[in-house]
Structures are given as C-alpha cells and as structure tokens.
Amino acid sequence: MDNKSLTGTLSVSSAPHIVTKLDTAKTMQWVLIALAPAFIMSIVNFGVRSALLTIVCVAACAFFEWGYEKIMHKDITVGDFSACVTGVILAFNMPSNFPFWMAIIGCFTAIVVAKQLFGGIGRNFANPAIVGRIVLLLSFTTQMTTWPVSKVHPAVDAATGATPMSFVNLGATPKNLPALSDMALGFTGGAMGEVSAVAILIGLIILIWKKIISPIIPCSMIATIFVIALIYYGVKGGDYSALHMAMYHVLGGGAMFGAVFCATDYATSPNMKSAKLIYGIGCGAVTMVIRLMCSYPEGVSFAILFMNVATPLIDKYVEERHFRKRFGGEK
C-alpha cells in the first residue's frame, strides 16, 4: 500500500482515545447521566435555583464553544457534549445562590481560555471546569464562599452557613460538626453538586460500570485523603476521633466530587496505571496539605490543577521507567 492510500485510511484525533463502541459524544452523555444523581440532590437540598444555575452554565459553555469555533472557522464540536459536561461540573462547584452573570464569566474562562485557546477538547492543559472555578474563587471570593444551607437540614434556620471544611478550619469541636450521615446525604452547606456523597458514589459506579473511567484515580485520591487524615488526627489526639475525622475529610468539601468527576479528565490525567496511581495519590496529598497546613479550608481544586500541570512529568517518568525495565536499561 503506498503512502497516499495509507493516509486515506488513518484518522488522527485528540483525546479521549477509548477502544470501545463509545465515541466522545456517547462518553459525555454517560458522564451527564452519572452527574444526574448529584443534580437531583442539589435540587432537593437547595431548591430550584440550583437547577437554573446549572442550565445557565450549560447554555453559556455551549454558546462560548460554538461562538469561538464559528469565529475561528473551526469545526463545530458542540454536538460532542463536552461543553455541556464542563458547564454542569462548573455549576456543581458553585453555591446555589451564585449570581448568574458571574457564573457566565467562569464559563467563558473554562471554555475559551482554558480549552479552546489551547486547541479544544483533548489539548487543554488543565480541567476547564477547575480553571473556571479557581478564577471565580479568586475574583469573587465572597460570593463563592457564601454557602446556602440545605433546605431539609433539621437543625439550621439560617439561610447561609459554614461548610464542613470551614467548621474544621474554624476549630469547631467534634460535637459541633455536622453528622456524617448528613454529609453522606448532602444535608449540609456547600457547593451544590459536591455535598451528597451518596449521589457522587452512584455516579462513580455508573462511570466504572460503563468503563468511562478507571477506578485507580478516584480510589487512590480518596484513600490518600483518608490515610493522611487518620494519621494526622491520630497523632494530634485530643477530642477528635481519628477515624471519625478521616471519614469527615473524605465526605466533606469537594473530595469525592473532585476525585470522580474532575481528577479523571481524559486530557489532563495520566495514561498508564502506575501513573494514574501516582497522580491520584498526589491529588489527595496536596489536598490534605492545603486543608491541614494552610488558612484556606479546602484544597481539592488547587490540588487537581497542580497535578494536571504535573501530568506530563508523571507520564514521562513512568513511561521511561517502563521501557528501561522492559528493554534492559536501553534508552
């Protein structure tokens, strides 16, 4: 076969590269399905405002992707639903009372700045939704940290309150912390898609069942958070139960949501199994460094962004080590 004939039979595209019957559009549709339980719980806990904010973010992300590609005369890729997934994940990282116009700025940052300017899907250096969230957090700190409480919480009358991680950061005693059962169901203050661990766990099961993601990254990240918290509070002693606080750090904040839906982004996470393990452990370790040693109560987004940037180095190290071992030290 000559070069001309061979060229006509090959197609080179960006990530995700999945050897299944799923294409990018179907993959993103399954991710949206996996996000549905968290979406339902956000409405139960925070009301219809969370649904409206999600719709605004999805529409804005799809519009910015379409508009950028139209202006730049590129192929229109809105139909692959990746922009919709970014919109949902970004919305789920916000409080339900977050102003719409601010959310639209975050959508622009995520789609145009973090994704399209780097070449589009598969070429972004970091998870677009994570970049959008961090920009919003740094730009509109007050609005991004004013958390509505759950509408079904039995013990809270205020409209807004602290998140579980804020309670720890403020030095609350164990008896004043939210119950683990409330955190599992999502009956606490926080970002509207992150608060229900049960809903996120259902999404994780769906993604693993459909082989959309590998369990290595979320499991290693969550396990690292658990182990570090267990050791830290075991050494610290006092009124805190090490096991209780380890579970608290796993269920609280964005640990589970970030591990399942953000850290596993195809373009910004490693490829090989051992690299995924290093990456997941790194995400968990950086999260706990920020939570335990810094003044900021939460560190999941910053940890994932840090490890996104480190992904090429992790891939390079693991691949070189693999080939040296396989071919007897030859480069």
Rank of each mutant, 00 (worst) to 15 (best):
D2C: 00
K4P: 00
G8A: 13
T9I: 05
S11T: 15
K21I: 14
L22M: 13
D23Q: 10
K26H: 12
T27N: 05
T27D: 12
V31G: 10
S42P: 03
N45Q: 14
L52M: 11
T54K: 00
T54R: 09
V56G: 02
C61M: 08
A62C: 15
A62F: 07
E65Q: 09
E65N: 00
W66V: 10
M72H: 15
K74P: 11
S82N: 10
S82A: 09
V85M: 10
P99Y: 03
P99R: 05
W101K: 06
I105N: 03
G106D: 09
T109M: 15
V112D: 06
L117T: 08
G120C: 12
I121W: 04
F125L: 06
A126G: 10
I134G: 06
L136W: 08
S139V: 00
W147K: 02
W147L: 03
P148I: 03
S150R: 07
K151T: 14
H153R: 03
D157H: 01
A159E: 02
T160H: 04
T160C: 02
T163L: 04
P164D: 04
V168H: 05
P174W: 08
A179N: 13
A184H: 04
A184L: 07
G186V: 03
G186A: 06
T188C: 07
G190S: 06
S196E: 12
A197C: 11
V198M: 11
V198L: 09
I202V: 15
I206A: 10
I208G: 02
P215R: 01
S220Q: 04
S220L: 15
I225T: 05
V227Q: 04
I228R: 07
G234F: 05
D239A: 15
Y240C: 02
S241C: 06
H244K: 13
A246W: 03
M247P: 05
Y248V: 03
G252Q: 03
G254Y: 08
A263S: 10
Y266W: 14
T268C: 14
M272N: 01
S274D: 13
T287L: 11
L292G: 00
Y296G: 06
S301A: 15
A303Q: 09
V309T: 12
V309A: 14
K325V: 12
